[in-house]
Structure formats: C-alpha cells, structure tokens
Nucleic acid binder design. Structure first.
Length: 288
DNA sequence: ACTGGCTCCTGAGGGC
DNA sequence: TGCCCTCAGGAGCCAG
C-alpha cells in the first residue's frame, strides 16, 4: 500500500542536493521536451539552451531555481508527482519523462511527472520577484520563521490551524503530510481555530514544524545516491509517520485509534487523546 | 480582506 | 482476470 510520495519540502531539498553536483558547470548539449502541457506550457526558450550551463541550483519553498551562466534561470516545481533524476543519456526513456536536459559527459537530467501538475518556467533578473514567488512566507527552516511571525499570521483568523500552516503566505513547505505530523508532535488539535492557540502552543508548533522537516531532510541525505544512474524514481524516504495515513491504527504514543477527517478539502489525521483541544469549528461537510 | 471551494491529471486500489 | 469507479493531492485562482 505504498502510495506515491508527494514531493514535500524535504524531497525537493533532497532533489536539489542530489541533482546539483551532476549538473553544475556541465555544458548543456540539448533539451528535449516531450510534453509541453504541464500546469503551464513549458517555455520553448528552454530548447535553445545548448551551449549554456548551470551555475547554481537554489530552492525557495518547493521551487527549484536553476541558474544559467548568462543570468537567466529555470524554475522547476515538482507538483504532486514530479521528480528529477540524473541518468546516463542512453538510458531508456520512461513513460511520463517529459523534459530531458542532455549534459556533456553522457548524462541527462530527466523530469518525470505522471500527473503533470508540475511547472517549468524561465526568466531573468530576480526570480524571487516572480509573481509565483513574491508573496511566499518565510522558509520553515530559516531564521525568519518565528513564533511572533506565526502568531501574527494567526491573529484574528478563524481558519483551522492546520489550514493556516499549509498556507504558503504564512510559511512555505508545509504540505499535507507534514502538517498533520507537526500538529501531532506539538499536541495540537488540527481543527482548532488559528486565533485560539496560545503563545506557548504556537511556540511548540514552530518547533515541531522545524523538527519534522529537518529530520526528513536529514533522512533524505541517505538516499542521494539514487539520483544518479538509476532507472527508477529518486528514492524518496519514508519518515516514520505518527498519524498520516494511519486512520484506525493505534497511536504510537497512547494507543488510541487515529482519526481521519477531511479538513479544507484534504485528509487530516490526528490522535483524539494526545491532541487535545476543543475545536470550535463545525464539522467539515465537504463532499470529497 | 478572508475564506472556502474548484480545478488541473493519472495511477492505485477496491468492489464486483 | 478485468472493468469501472473513487480517491489522492500542490497550489493558483475565483467567487461569495
């Protein structure tokens, strides 16, 4: 029952670290786009990159920024099912390998994305000013994500805290899996209205988000070899999950059955015993 | 200004 | 064995 792993921030960071050493300063021989219809059309400009090379690979939120030697950049988002890997250029192309970046030395950077929710964009200047990046909140592992910042974002908000921490304008990189996991670790009920949390609870939550993401990034490090010369997808790790996808199973701390409910259109899991709090919000009556 | 809901897409898994 | 149905989800966008 291993579901396809959705790339969350740790997976994106692991991808960056895995891909970077193989693509940096290696001349691009050719770019082939097999399917252009991702979330937005893959820019045709991409196919004229032969002769250029990448000088840096950075990450902002779940976006990867590949800097070119002429000042332009390529922005890649993995969406829900995207992955990047480096293979020998003679490796068989798999179904859903949509973008191939051939590099000197017989290597190829390949973008694989069955659901095509991903994104490839090009631009120049400051990528952080791009409309998709300009309004993003702080990086969860950076210094600017503090209790005060979260407290301000939650003040006066009646939204469930789980939805609040998944809002990229509050803090980036907290996807559906890690939102449930962080709330469990902070012992906070996911349905509590954001404004009802105390300073102490928000402080716990900030620490839990950082811990859960940092641990996952650290684990990702052990899978880096899978990014090269592998015919499979990158070996995304599976962190030991405490609640996610464990509905009905005993809580690893107290043994109570884990509860699942749709919150804000997304599956949400929690332990009714460990995560106390009186959700003031009504039942979600989503049709999904 | 907030907030909730819809949308893109395909593969996996369950039921029969 | 095989078909059909449902579900999952990042995040931009839109409407109330």
């Amino acid at each position: 029952m291993v579901r396809a792993v959705v790339p969350e921030l740790p997976e994106v960071e692991t991808t960056r670290l895995g891909v970077m050493p193989h693509v940096l300063n290696r001349r691009i021989c050719r770019v082939v786009v097999h399917r252009r219809d991702l979330r937005q059309p893959v820019p045709e400009e991409l196919e004229s990159l032969a002769g250029r090379h990448f000088t840096r690979v950075e990450r902002r939120s779940k976006y990867l920024i590949f800097w070119l030697d002429d000042g332009r950049w390529v922005l890649v988002h993995l969406g829900m099912s995207g992955s990047l890997r480096v293979v020998g250029s003679d490796a068989d192309r798999k179904r859903h390998d949509h973008v191939l970046v051939g590099l000197e030395g017989g290597l190829e950077l390949r973008y694989h994305d069955p659901r095509r929710f991903g994104l490839w964009l090009m631009g120049e200047g400051d990528p952080l000013q791009h409309p998709l990046l300009a309004k993003l909140g702080p990086e969860p592992l950076g210094k600017s994500f503090t209790v005060d910042v979260l407290e301000r974002a939650c003040a006066g908000s009646r939204v469930a805290i789980k939805a609040r921490i998944m809002d990229a304008s509050v803090v980036v990189g907290v996807g559906n899996i890690y939102a449930s996991e962080a709330l469990f670790r902070a012992k906070i009920h996911p349905l509590r209205p954001a404004s009802a949390l105390t300073h102490g609870e928000l402080s716990r939550l900030v620490r839990a988000i950082r811990r859960v993401l940092r641990d996952a990034v650290a684990q990702g490090g052990t899978t880096l070899r899978d990014f090269v010369h592998s015919d499979g997808s990158p070996g995304y790790f599976r962190q030991r999950l405490m609640v996610y996808e464990r509905a009905g199973q005993p809580c690893r701390v107290c043994g109570s059955p884990i509860v699942r409910q749709i919150v804000g259109q997304r599956s949400t899991y929690w332990c009714p015993q460990c995560q106390i709090g009186s959700p003031v919000l009504g039942e979600s009556k989503s049709s999904r």
